[in-house]
């Protein structure tokens, strides 16, 4: 088993941080192997931002994500850039707050107004946690509890409540998506 995740958006949306929390949760609290990378260089200053995670039941050989099975995009740019890389049969999760056009993909598209929900919860900065929760709820790769523990390890205490709330909300949305439940929001589908 080898599953590739890509979390892509704009600098400041916290997607690299979310990818590290996902990897940390898997590394410290499951028997799975994990490899996390991120885009470095000029890209990491403003502009686009990207965190990649590979989960495997054996040691990861090639450490880079090329065709993610799960692609979370939180800007239109990220969607336009990476949608074509989605693995056949993969799932593209779009933050419909910012992603208005989704190119045709050879997989499933799920849309949800992630940033808008985060704003309603109090701070848009926790949109990354909703996104992370969706990925976990949708894939079952880690439990909500394990993710919450990783959040508490990586993030300052003052932010725990809101982050965990966002995470929980995302997780529920993800589980609904997995159950084939309603695909919230809109977007062009394959």
């Amino acid at each position: 088993m080898r599953k590739e995740f890509r979390l892509a958006g704009a600098g400041g949306q916290g997607l690299i941080s979310a990818s590290i929390i996902l990897a940390e949760a898997i590394a410290s609290r499951t028997d799975l192997y994990v490899a996390q990378t991120q885009s470095y260089g000029p890209e990491s200053r403003g502009g686009s931002s990207r965190g990649d995670v590979i989960v495997s039941d054996s040691q990861v050989d090639y450490p880079e994500v090329t065709n993610p099975e799960y692609l979370l995009v939180m800007t239109q740019d990220a969607c336009s850039t990476y949608a074509k890389d989605l693995a056949p049969g993969g799932v593209l999760i779009a933050d419909s707050t910012y992603v208005k056009e989704i190119p045709s993909v050879n997989g499933t598209v799920k849309s949800y107004p992630i940033s808008e929900r985060a704003r309603e919860m109090g701070r848009e900065i926790v949109a990354n946690m909703i996104g992370l929760g969706i990925l976990a709820g949708l894939t079952g790769v880690v439990s909500l509890e394990v993710l919450e523990e990783a959040v508490m390890e990586r993030l300052p205490k003052s932010t725990w409540d809101l982050n965990k709330k966002a995470l929980r909300h995302g997780f529920e949305v993800g589980m609904q998506m997995a159950g084939g439940g309603e695909e919230v929001g809109e977007g062009t589908r394959a």
Partner: peptide
């Protein structure tokens, strides 16, 4: 650089 910046389980 790949090994230096990569995060993995130890």
């Amino acid at each position: 650089e790949v090994v230096g910046h990569l995060r993995e389980k130890v």
